[in-house]
Amino acid sequence: MPSPLDTVRVVPKHHPLVRLTHWINVPVLLGLIASGLAIYWAAPVFLHAYDPALHSRDYLANLGSAIAHSIGDRSVDPRYWVYERLSLGPRQLAVSLRWHWALAYLFMLNGAVYFVGLALGGGWRALLPRASDFAESLAMMRFYLGVIPMRLLRRPWPHPDIRSKYNALQRSAYFSMSLFGALAVLSGWAMHKPSTLGWLERIFVSYDGARVVHFVCMIVLGGFVIPHVILAIADGWDTLRSMVVGWSTRVKENTHGR
């Protein structure tokens, strides 16, 4: 039983709404990608001339064949590897559309809560790009590139002195992910209601333009997750925990940590 007198010095990190919307995004985005790829299977937008060796006109089918052969997965048609393993599966259009609409409305609701919370609570200031970001980004990249070599060489390699909540790389990543999330929603609506929202379709030039943008948004949002998770784990338990509980025990002293 800890004494009721015990106190811990902590720093507030993430607002409850940020934490809530962050974690809701995890299953929602996974489901959106899984159902979205299954929808994409019905009529791929990235097509090439028919390849008689692969029986395909679809770049994702080629990618699937390459992956299936390289990892030796023979349990599915290699052309459908991407669709079988990363989506709800080929020939699942009706159910995938229903998944996609349900999750898309959740994603929009979740995003609205996030944006309204940031706007009214002032949290947006920590994400806004700054004039110093370019120089700081270079310093951060130099730091990240040097972490492993310098540890091997047992040389000190101090973290750049960051006096804001996020460093420039984090800031630009989090800021642009918000934009890509919004762009995914807009291009999704442009595809979903091109007649009702004709002005939106025209912003993406054409119906297929919206499809290409929507697909690219998926790649960018999915691609962001890889360095995001690696860096969060590399940064340590305190960073992971702060996204659950909201505070950090990395107390800033005279010089700031992160």
């Binding site: 015990d6 507030p12 509980v245 800033k252």
Partner: peptide, 22 residues
């Protein structure tokens, strides 16, 4: 207000409460 972003300044929090919230 609930929405307000808290300043990133060190606070002294009761351990028991932090544990309960964690």
């Amino acid at each position: 207000s609930f929405l307000a972003e808290r300043p990133e300044t060190t606070i002294e929090a009761p351990r028991a409460r932090l544990e309960a919230q964690s």
